[in-house]
Design a protein around this nucleic acid. Structure first.
Lengths: 225, 225
DNA sequence: TAGATTGTTAATCGATTAACAATC
DNA sequence: TAGATTGTTAATCGATTAACAATC
């Protein structure tokens, strides 16, 4: 509606720079903490200091979505958190299936924070006959062969891949055929998916390699002054 | 030594822009794939196309570390992979301890890719008496109370935190007291550590919130032309 | 040699930060 | 009211991309 929605640059999602979008979950975490601590108000200066960012950046980021503060006062923590929740789409349930019922899949299934925020794992799929037919955290574990038929009857928006690397692309293909709108991938591979399907990667080992690089630099320059 | 090492800007690590550093693990993954497929040579144009980035960016990034190609020919995949391995510090062993022997910790302990690249988990610490004294993937599980004494005798560089959120800060404090040089944190909290200790976060839920945002935008604009 | 592709400088583009009028 | 702080524009800064001489 407003002129911002006419931005169609690759680095913009719906008029908002991707750099801003990536910071939204970060804001969400700090506001959730403040809300838990029952802090009532906070200024951009204080919040930015807590987060280690620039207060102008914080205000600029929020400005893409609306004006949620009050001059001379700051922001009401609960109001701002509610807005960020709404912006992130956390005000509605999102159904997921999880493929790969190993330790990582089990860890995710056990993570209460997801269900508390409306992310519901409807079923877990695996190829291991020893786990098929059982339950993980109350969620049924089904045969991977039943995935497409299941999705036909019970559509879900997000497919989570926690299979070994070798099985990841085939799993992605099945999820796409099943009509998921997004894939959350934990396998250390670059998946190919059609562009109408969103892909979000959690590349755990890339994070460790980055740490390895930084460690090496520190070893070589032990005293950065 | 060269003029680049005089850059001391906050966005530079040792003369290299942080944006470049973050792409190194990405290059590592694609080069490892090509090497496995026994591809002998590749041009910046081809590699960049595979990775979905700009060839100039690829060459510019490599240029911060040296010149590894050959005009008119491109890059020898194995040579470039060896260089990237060296740049990332993967040519030496790095010892780690893991705190939190739950499903996530077990998943990491079972992840062969780490040990294959020289990341060695020396011990796992937990507070649950049922797992203490046992082994996970051949790695001894010890009482969390023994962490500091263990680190005194057997120093390690990286401490991995896979505890619940509530225990994460205390765990970080213990690891810092034990003298680790870096912390790899999987708990969904913002840890406070002294600036001489490196901190790398794997915020799993932030990745899911990002996906939630993108899904919401797609729902509102189902047909981006 | 001619063609191809690198390494690297210069130009462009986007993101961050500063500044300040508006206003609670 | 005076002081504080937002929302937003403009300036700065950094990252990406284009261009091309060097050269295999």
């Amino acid at each position: 509606m407003d002129f911002k929605s006419n931005h169609h640059h690759k680095n913009f999602i719906d008029g908002v720079p991707y750099a801003t979008v990536k910071r939204l979950p970060f804001y969400h975490r700090f506001l959730t903490d403040l809300s838990k601590k029952e802090v009532e108000r906070i200024s951009s200066r204080e919040l930015a200091a807590k987060m280690g960012i620039n207060p102008s950046q914080l205000r600029q980021d929020l400005c893409y979505f609306g004006s949620f503060g009050q001059q001379g006062y700051g922001y009401r923590v609960n109001d701002l958190l509610r807005e960020v929740n709404r912006i992130l789409g956390l005000n509605q349930e999102i159904k997921m299936v999880l493929v790969g019922g190993g330790h990582l899949g089990t860890a995710l299934a056990n993570y209460d924070n997801f269900s508390r925020r409306g992310f519901i794992i409807k079923a877990i799929f695996d190829k291991n006959p020893e786990v098929i037919g059982g339950y993980i955290k109350g969620i049924p574990v089904l045969d991977i062969k039943e995935l497409q038929e299941y999705l036909r009857v019970e559509p879900v928006e997000i497919g989570v891949i926690t299979t070994p690397a070798e099985a990841a692309q085939e799993t992605a293909d099945r999820l796409v055929q099943g009509g998921v709108k997004a894939i959350w991938n934990f396998a250390p591979v670059s998946l190919k998916v059609p562009e109408e399907v969103l892909l979000e990667n959690m590349h755990i080992s890339e994070s460790l390699l980055l740490l390895s690089f930084k460690l090496k630099q520190r070893r070589n320059q032990p005293d950065p002054v």
